[in-house]
Design a protein around this nucleic acid. Structure first.
Length: 573
RNA sequence: GCGCCUGUAGCUCAGUUGGAUAGAGCAUCGGAUUUCUAAUCCGGCGGUCGCAGGUUCAAGUCCUGCCAGGCGCGCCA
């Protein structure tokens, strides 16, 4: 199903082509875009001004010729020319209403499936073993999960892969810490905190005591050589960490199709080096094996350290080759913070030279910091993610209890969970991923204005309207009544509903869930205004059903969009 | 030193990739509920878009130079 924007755009294209058959108009912005303001109509086209140079005619004259050939059949009420040459398009109420009815009849709500037959691997969250997840981890986790849901809605086969940090030098240090500083009781009550604690102590010892450091390195070598005792410890660290991560993922409603940490690729690393060597892509430098990227104007990329060990670039290369061989993805998308931009550009360049065919893309997001500075586990300024989620649910429960005192307690708790977690996720998703985030409790837990609870509230109110309609008018099927857009409020809402598919497409194309969140907020505002200013159940029969039907579509689309952001929509709030 | 990013209302952020009078939320001030959930709605206040040039019909958006801040720049990931 085509969106209204797509239909308008193709008709505009045809009109310009018919009006100016000899000209090359491919560089023009021929798409219809939402109008800048309500007074300018519903959509507008800005191509005439840009065409002025190519066609050597005044823009208004160009616009007039295009409009004269524009097919308005069954779609437009009017097409006006304004200002220097804007083409302002106003849909007919009838066309808009019929389009909404088509959306309502479509199981996919008019969202197209350009991704059918394509596979994307999304690499996100990827916490380090033996470190607790703190508030900064929410960004990769929640943005990655939303991107996965959005791509899936567009037909892509998406594999979410949690590329855990489960291999590397830190394990030698951790094993030493575990052997010397462990408090078994603490390990039982909060295992990851305890692993973190002994790691920090051991790390300090390393800096003060060279013998300790040597021993840590020796333990690492033993681990990597397959020593059963160290191997068992290492596995225990992973199991304990994963158990805690999974608790948090369950709270967040986030899941993965694959959980393959760095260690999964360990055995493939020597093969990667051989491949790079046989292709002549690397050479020795200062004892290390290095890929030089002068042609790409990038700094050199180390693929084997001077001590013979491998590093993250090697692992990442092995991961790409492994994924290509096993899943044949069309694209691999990494969601990490901004600090890794250079690393990804380097390793993408090496991968490409080594024959990787997959489209590799790095989606980076801004760092999260506190008003007083960076989040640091060592300085103790990091806020644990669990704590934030607890607080969000607590505050939501307070509000639920005052707003809905008659609700059964277990339902209050369920609503508080959906609202609290939703608020935290939305606070992150509604923001441009690439802007840096300063964490404040107030912002992360915002529950009014532009927030998940505002959207959830709109959905709950609609559910209530539909229930009441059934109660008061049993046997009356509102779906039998055509949608009529008889008020400015209804019309504004209708336009937002018609834009939904475009918003999903934009969010995927630009890898920005915030575009979808913005759209859903605008849609909710339009609905709330409609709700407040237009009576439904008190309206005369017929009109009443038409309005309830519009409510039903609004609820469907809001639920659809919120689900794509990973936010639950309780039927009652 | 080089590279990437950021600077928009008192605060937190949008700004459809160059389009019309720069928009929201929070805060603040005023109004709306015998009516479908007031976690709402309607309105007011609030801006030299960091600064200075440039490109053109049109610049918050592109180019150059400054200023301020963040991040990164061979053996951590």
């Amino acid at each position: 199903m085509q969106t209204i924007k797509e239909i308008l755009s193709s008709r505009l294209r045809a009109a310009f082509a018919a009006a100016f058959p000899e000209a090359d108009l491919s560089a023009l912005p021929l798409d219809a875009v939402p109008a800048a303001g309500e007074s300018f109509g519903d959509y507008q086209c800005n191509a005439a001004m840009a065409a002025s140079k190519i066609l050597r005619q005044p823009p208004r004259a160009i616009a007039e010729q295009a409009v004269a050939r524009l097919d308005a059949t069954g779609l437009l009420a009017r097409a006006d020319i304004a200002g220097p040459g804007f083409i302002n398009l106003t849909l007919s109420d009838d066309a808009l209403a019929r389009h909404l009815e088509a959306l309502q009849a479509d199981a996919l709500l008019g969202v197209p499936r350009p991704g059918d037959g394509k596979t994307v691997i999304l690499d996100y969250s990827s916490p380090n073993v033996a470190k607790p997840m703190h508030v900064a981890h929410i960004r990769s986790t929640v943005i990655g999960d939303a991107l996965k849901r959005i791509h899936r809605a567009l037909g892509y086969t998406v594999l979410g892969d949690n590329h855990l940090g489960d291999w590397g030098t830190q394990f030698g240090i951790l094993i030493m810490g575990y052997r010397h500083f462990l408090d078994p009781k603490a390990l039982e009550t909060s295992p990851v905190d305890e692993l973190q604690r002994v790691y920090v102590l051991s790390h300090q010892q390393c800096e003060e005591d060279p013998a300790w450091k040597d021993q840590a390195r020796a333990e690492l070598v033993k681990l990597q050589a397959g020593d059963p005792e160290n191997r068992a410890l290492w596995q225990q660290f992973i199991d304990l960490s994963l158990a805690e991560f999974n608790r948090i993922y369950a709270r967040l409603g986030v899941s993965f199709e694959l959980v393959r940490g760095e260690s999964f690729y360990h055995d493939a690393l020597p093969g990667v080096i051989e491949k790079l060597q046989s292709l002549g892509l690397v050479r020795e430098s200062e004892g290390a094996l290095v890929a030089f990227l002068d042609d790409e104007k990038l700094p050199p990329c180390i693929v084997r350290k001077s001590d013979g060990g491998y590093n993250y670039a090697t692992t990442d290369l092995a991961t790409v080759f492994s994924r290509e061989a096993e899943f044949h993805p069309d694209a691999i998308v990494y969601v990490t913070d901004e600090r890794q931009q250079l690393h990804f550009r380097q390793f993408f360049a090496v991968a490409k030279k080594a024959g990787a065919k997959t489209h590799l893309r790095h989606i980076w997001f801004g760092l999260m910091r506190l008003p007083e500075g960076l989040l640091s586990t060592r300085k103790g300024t990091a806020i644990k993610l669990d704590l934030l989620l607890d607080e969000a649910e607590r505050r939501a429960l307070e509000i639920v209890k005052t707003a809905s005192p008659d609700m059964p307690e277990d339902q209050q708790l369920a609503v508080a969970r959906a609202v609290g977690i939703g608020a935290v996720k939305y606070a992150d998703l509604s923001q441009n991923p690439q802007s840096a985030v300063t964490f404040t409790w107030e912002k992360a837990l915002a529950m009014d204005g532009n927030s998940a609870p505002y959207l959830q509230y709109a959905v709950a109110r609609i559910a209530s309207v539909i229930d009441k309609h059934q109660e008061r008018f049993p046997g009356v099927d509102f779906m039998q009544e055509p949608i009529s857009l008889d008020s400015p409020h209804a019309r504004r809402l209708a336009l937002r509903l018609a834009r939904h598919a475009d918003a999903v497409l934009d969010a995927a194309a630009q890898e920005k869930p915030s575009l979808l969140a913005d759209h859903l907020y605008d849609l909710s505002q339009a609905y709330s205004s409609f709700y407040q200013n237009v009576p439904f159940l008190k309206a005369e029969a017929g009109l009443r059903e038409s309005r309830v039907r519009l409510c039903d579509l609004a609820a469907k689309i809001l639920r659809h969009g919120l689900t794509l952001l990973g936010i639950d929509t309780p039927e009652r709030i």
